[in-house]
Design a protein around this nucleic acid. Structure first.
Lengths: 106, 106
DNA sequence: AGAGATCGGTTACTTTTAGTAACAATCGAA
DNA sequence: TTCGATTGTTACTAAAAGTAACCGATCTCT
């Protein structure tokens, strides 16, 4: 912090949500999982500019926030799938409003 | 880029929008301007953890993207106000969906 | 059985982005 | 005429993201 006259307002939840979606790649990752669960490598193929290191980091953060779920599928071969929770799915739907804005204005 | 099998999809506009709102502070800055125009120092007071250096940078980016407008009001003393364009206002309204999600889930 | 390839990561290192603090030009008030 | 507010800028540090090489556990091919 730099100066100190922050009087007013600004809801904690709202602030928190902007801090969430204000992180690089979060929006696209959620978008990519909206239709169906995806494997690590599928997300990575879908968003090639996102490095594996950061993808891994984002996935862990989104898991901690209860937005995505890690499912280990014990078939042969063992696969790891990521899916949206209900919370995550609803965030994805909220972000659709931004996507609609993008279609109109960009 | 790291590997090279990015086959499919992903709309440019959508990608661009996520790159926009995926930048730190952008969401909160737009939120802060949604009700009424604000001066530099008012935005800064509203979001105290955002440094002046970065606020200045973000403002320039948002101006270039046609989302906010810089109005120099030639009264005494001269003031500088920032307001949302129509484009910016609609983005702000789209972000309200995310805020509603935050109210419900956070 | 051995040689590769794939998958889901991790590690070590570099580059980019954000935070901090100090400064400055302009103005008006005391 | 000195002070504070306002809107920045500059120089420097710290944090976040990008890059590339590596790993262990399967699989596939021959």
């Amino acid at each position: 912090m730099e100066e100190t006259n922050h009087q007013p307002h600004l809801c904690d939840k709202v602030e928190h949500s902007y801090q969430l979606i204000g992180k690089k790649w979060i929006g696209l990752i959620i978008h990519s999982l909206l239709d169906e669960p995806k494997r690590f490598s599928e997300i990575h193929a879908y968003i090639p500019d996102l490095s594996k290191r950061v993808l891994n980091e984002r996935i862990k953060e989104l898991e901690e926030s209860g937005i995505i779920l890690r499912n280990v599928i014990t078939d042969r071969p063992v696969r790891v799938e990521y899916s949206l929770t209900r919370k995550g799915n609803e965030l994805g739907k909220a972000l659709k409003a931004v996507e609609a804005w993008a279609e109109k204005w960009l």
